[in-house]
Computed example of a mutant assay.
Amino acid sequence: MRLHREGYTIMLTTGLVLLALNLLAYFYLFSSQPTAIIVLLVASLVLFGLVVQFFRVPNRQLTRAESQVIAPADGTIVVIEETEESEYFKERRRQISIFMSPLNVHVNRNPVTGIVRYFKYYPGKYLVAWHPKSSTENERTTIVIQLANGVEVLLRQIAGAVARRIVWYVKENQPVEQGTELGFIKFGSRVDVFLPLDADVKVKIGDRTKGGVTVLAELPS
């Protein structure tokens, strides 16, 4: 396991602030109250541990298959439905949504191998990730990857009530490889994937996914 570079500044800042707070408590605020000092120290260690775990990147054997769409994120499947995709396709598609809690790994990965044909970033609101309007009103990105056979897969990173920063590493006309890092969403959110209607979905509501490993669907040839 390693720690993601997106967390270096946050982890360092958090560590320094907690260290300063504990030193202040030890020498000035609670110098005669050892129990209070211990409680503060334990709470600080737990908080720092939560911040560090958020930026973990576990070692994994990634799934690689041209005909399969792999989960772009860790989380829980909260939506599987046929819906109108109005931004790019402007027609009906199969939507699969993954909710990412603050305890999930937050690296986003390319679900397929291909060429990025479309990219757009939208500033926006910070509604809770499961809100029906979060996919159209929250801060988000839309990324469309075209496979070698011409099939296109759309992925949308969506910020939530806690997530306040979306990071992406792709741009239009860039070739991408399945399983490689696409971006990062800090502190919990959601990722939507839009597939052709004839895609064979392999997951169900409530399933837990592992980014780069779990097969979401089999694409038509």
Rank of each mutant, 00 (worst) to 15 (best):
R2T: 04
L3R: 00
H4K: 00
I10K: 14
M11S: 09
T13L: 12
L18V: 04
L18Q: 05
L21M: 11
N22S: 13
L23Q: 06
A25R: 03
Y26H: 12
L29F: 13
I37K: 15
I37R: 15
I38A: 15
V39P: 13
L40G: 10
L41P: 00
A43G: 03
S44Y: 01
L45H: 03
L45T: 08
F48Y: 12
V52G: 04
F54H: 11
R56F: 10
R56K: 13
V57Q: 10
P58V: 12
Q61T: 11
L62K: 13
T63P: 04
T63Y: 07
A65N: 14
A65H: 14
E66I: 11
S67N: 14
Q68F: 06
Q68K: 13
V69T: 09
V69Q: 05
P72L: 12
G75W: 00
T76S: 06
I77A: 07
V79Y: 08
V79R: 10
E82P: 01
E82H: 07
E84T: 06
S86D: 13
E87Q: 15
Y88T: 13
E91T: 14
R94A: 02
S97A: 15
F99C: 11
L103R: 03
L103D: 13
R109W: 08
V112C: 07
V112G: 03
Y118R: 15
K120T: 11
Y121C: 03
Y122Q: 05
G124P: 01
L127T: 09
V128D: 13
P132K: 04
S135W: 05
S135F: 07
T136D: 11
E137S: 05
N138M: 09
Q146Y: 10
L147A: 13
L147V: 06
A148Y: 10
G150Q: 14
G160V: 08
V162T: 07
R164I: 10
I166N: 10
W168L: 06
V170F: 07
G179Y: 03
E181R: 02
G183V: 07
I185W: 01
I185C: 03
F187Q: 00
F187S: 01
D192F: 07
D198K: 05
K202Y: 06
D207C: 14
D207G: 13
V213K: 05
T214H: 04
L219H: 15
L219I: 15
